[in-house]
Computed example of a mutant assay.
Amino acid sequence: MKTVYEFTVRKTNGDEKSLRDFEGKPILIVNTASKCGLTNQFKGLQELYDKFNDNGLEILGFPCSQFNNQEYDNIEETTQFCQLNYGVSFPMFAKVDVNGNNEDPLFTFLKEQKKGVLSKEIKWNFTKFLIDKNGQVIKRYAPTTEPLKIEKDITKLL
Rank of each mutant, 00 (worst) to 15 (best):
K156E: 14
K11E: 09
K123I: 12
G37S: 04
G87D: 02
C36G: 03
K25T: 11
A33L: 03
T144L: 15
V137S: 13
K114D: 09
V117L: 13
L148F: 02
I75A: 03
E23I: 02
L28N: 07
Q41V: 06
R20W: 04
G14I: 04
Q70M: 08
F62R: 10
G116W: 01
C64H: 06
D15A: 10
T144R: 15
T78I: 12
L110R: 03
F67R: 02
K114Y: 12
R10H: 10
F90I: 00
P91F: 01
S18H: 06
F62I: 11
N102F: 06
E77P: 00
P63M: 09
C36N: 10
S34P: 01
K123P: 00
F62C: 11
F81D: 14
K139W: 12
T108H: 06
M1A: 15
T144Q: 15
G24C: 07
V9P: 10
Q83F: 06
P63H: 04
T39F: 04
E47W: 01
M1R: 13
Y72T: 10
Y49W: 09
P91S: 09
G135R: 07
L148A: 03
E76T: 15
F109P: 02
I138V: 15
V4W: 04
L118W: 08
L57A: 10
D54T: 13
N134Y: 14
K114G: 06
E112A: 12
N101L: 02
P147D: 13
V88R: 00
F109T: 08
D132G: 08
D132R: 11
L45V: 11
Y5H: 12
E151F: 05
N101I: 07
T8M: 01
D21G: 00
D132T: 14
C64S: 14
V9Q: 07
